[in-house]
């Protein structure tokens, strides 16, 4: 059979681990997975620019609320734990997929979606409470940067939730096969990546605010 990705490189033998994995078995599996890793690198840079902006204008509060005034430890701690837990359950989904257990795979994906929804719910209520206190995006440069950085992460998570629901539907319909395996693996990467970004929001935004 000749395929688009015709050629297997000789170096490949040294990494034989992937050849058994379902997600690498179609010709487009390795391409999509490498492409997605590179996409994550670009997304990393996107967040880097937002973090840089935040750090530059973090103290530009224009007499309005500061980070220390706003952030409360219980709220962002719960968000962090929810997202860490969802990252864990997401990894369990891939684990079950690799053990060819469709039911558990679906189960863990659903749990991941629910945890993600919980995270988004708390974030939205946090934003609303700030807005009620008058700490809106229009108040100061600091708040513009805060809402944009954290909101960009939140919208990434929301997109991830929609995407994951679409994948749950496909797994339910077609079962564990190379295309779905690739999709589950890739959404897993995306989800863990968002967890990493959140860790830095937790550190650079929230903890910095609390400590300073």
């Amino acid at each position: 059979m000749s395929t688009l990705n015709h050629y297997k490189e000789p170096e490949k033998q040294s990494h034989s681990t992937t050849s058994e994995l379902l997600e690498y078995q179609r010709h487009d599996g390795p391409l999509n997975i490498l492409g997605f890793w590179i996409f994550l690198a670009t997304d990393l840079l996107l967040f880097a620019c937002l973090f840089a902006t935040y750090l530059v204008i973090r103290t530009h509060v224009d007499g309005g609320p500061t980070d220390k005034d706003l952030f409360e430890i219980p709220g962002f701690t719960i968000e962090t734990i929810l997202l860490l837990a969802s990252s864990f359950t997401g990894s369990l989904a891939v684990y079950e997929m690799r053990h060819n257990d469709k039911k558990r795979l679906l189960g863990w994906l659903v749990v991941t979606v629910l945890l993600g929804l919980g995270f988004i719910g708390i974030e939205v209520s946090e934003f609303l409470s700030y807005i009620r206190e008058g700490a809106t995006m229009q108040r100061s440069a600091f708040l513009s940067a805060f809402f944009t950085l954290v909101g960009t992460h939140g919208s990434h998570v929301s997109l991830g939730i929609i995407w994951m629901i679409s994948i749950i539907r496909q797994v339910a319909k077609y079962g564990i096969e190379p295309i779905n395996a690739r999709k589950v693996f890739i959404i897993g990467l995306y989800w863990h990546f968002l967890d990493i970004v959140w860790i830095f929001i937790f550190t650079v935004v929230y903890m910095t605010g609390v400590v300073s």
Binding site: L45, V56, H60, F142, S144
Partner: peptide, 29 residues
């Protein structure tokens, strides 16, 4: 390119949502 994406997006947010990333007032830079 992500840096361009961010620069343009933040300026757009300034313009449509009245934020203050790059304005002269309210601490923008």
């Amino acid at each position: 390119f992500p840096a361009l994406t961010v620069a343009l997006a933040l300026l757009l947010i300034d313009r449509v949502a009245d934020a203050h990333f790059f304005t002269m007032l309210h601490g923008g830079n």
